[in-house]
Design a binder for these strands. Structure first.
Length: 112
RNA sequence: UGAGUAAGUCAGAUAGUCGCGUGUGCAGUGCCGAAAGGCCGCAUACGAGGAAAGUCCGAGCUCCAUAGGGCAGGGUGCUGGGUAACUCCCAGUGGAGGCGACUCCAAGGAAAGUGCAACAGAAAUAUACCGCCUUCCGGUAGUUUUACUGGUAAGGUAAGGGUGGAAAGGUGAGGUAAGAGCUCACCAGCAGCUAGGCGACUAGGCUGCUCUGUAAACCCCACCUGGAGCAACACCGCAUAGAGGAGAGUUAAGUUGGCCCGACGUUCUCCUGGGUAGGUGGCUUGAGCCAUGCAGCAAUGCAUGGCCUAGAUAGAUGACUAUCGAAUACAGAACUCGGCUUAUAGACUUACUCGUAUC
RNA sequence: CGGGGUUUAGCGCAGUUUGGUAGCGCACAUGGUUUGGGACCAUGGGGCCGGGGGUUCAAGUCCCUCAACCCCGA
């Protein structure tokens, strides 16, 4: 299994925010845009308003872990960004995982 | 057994499955590359805190002139010691609080000078508004002495009055026309002398004195103090910019935190040769940690032995399951140390104080 | 990560240097003017000066500490 490739630069994020498609539920926001590559690239945004460094780290790790366990089922060729919403600061792993699954299903990137 | 004081420790553990970062080792006629090397794979070791936080102090390190001189500015402020240094720590002194164990204190100088003290009050650092008293000038009664009473009059007086945070040492007695440290007794404070202590300071006696508060107002005294910060800085690197070196010239602009000096230097000629993005170093062996012994009341120092314990660069510690009585607080390294301050569920250890009960 | 700044009436800002009465504009309320409204004129209300502690007789102002917000540096 290949390592997860991440989006790093601010202008890549801005481009996907303005040109991509978005899906929302109560914990997360999902932006996707086709990238014409044979892999998926992941971006994670956790706003400073959500809490201090410990809270932000935890939310980011939960998102990353959820994505890692779903990555093999997701269609390839997309840039994917997850943005955490305020309520995610109290969520546990199961909440994040099911919220992510719901959004990916809505976007049509995942089967079953 | 209850209430409390001080000092200190821990900050979930264990097992399993999956996953991440760094180091080390191994392997493949695998991929990229001219090569060095990098990527992918497997194994293994290690992998956030007591505050990593706030950035309030002090240092190391780097650059600015080899970090220079004067002034201004800033900091500290009982004494002695500790430390690389400190606005830190230890031991004392004085003051405040507590029955006590003990805790807290920016705690030099107001008797060098200046400023300020609103409102109120007669008056705010020197004062006479009311009052008290004397004299003078009147009025009434009276033979005079005298008694009562009045004044755009002259003085004395800080006892009494109300104001204020503060009214000129306090209380009592003597004294006086009325009063006043004017005198005396006791008390309080200040200065000098004496004795003890390295010192802050303490003690009693003698002599002199009675002075408002404010220095987290200016200031005085003593000591310290150049600026910026790892996004510092150094190196690699593709082009014309620019930069560096040597020489000449000048003090008009600029840099060196402010001003003056001093220094550098914009300008011209010659020589070398290259900015941004990006990459590498700085980056973890250090005033380090642990144990024992010695010196010291202690902070701490010295000696011996042992150990290596995150180093990322969009930023690594997470998820699930089971067991343990509950696993739940505050919270995430970013150049590195020493402190301070602030946040913090719960558990535990030691010493001590006050009370209750029993012997 | 490192520097720096701001916080005062519903909103935008003075006042902090040199401590003593907290002010300006817009907005708000009432009255006048107008046939009515706007504009204009007059009057008035509204503040524990971001939180806590200290110095002082007295703190928005001086000192310490905590918080929130904003700006700058590759």
């Amino acid at each position: 299994m290949n390592k997860t490739v991440t989006l790093k630069e601010n202008r890549q994020f801005k481009k996907i925010y303005s040109h991509g498609t978005s899906f929302v539920n109560n914990l997360l926001v999902l932006y996707i845009q086709p990238n014409n590559l044979s892999i998926n690239r992941l971006g994670i945004t956790v706003n400073k308003k959500i809490g201090k460094a410990v809270v932000r780290n935890r939310v980011r790790r939960l998102i990353r872990e959820s994505y890692r366990l779903k990555e093999m089922y997701i269609d390839v060729g997309y840039d994917i960004i997850f943005v955490s919403r305020m309520r995610a600061k109290d969520a546990n792993y199961h909440d994040i995982s099911s919220a992510m699954h719901q959004l990916l299903k809505k976007a049509g990137l995942i089967k079953l």
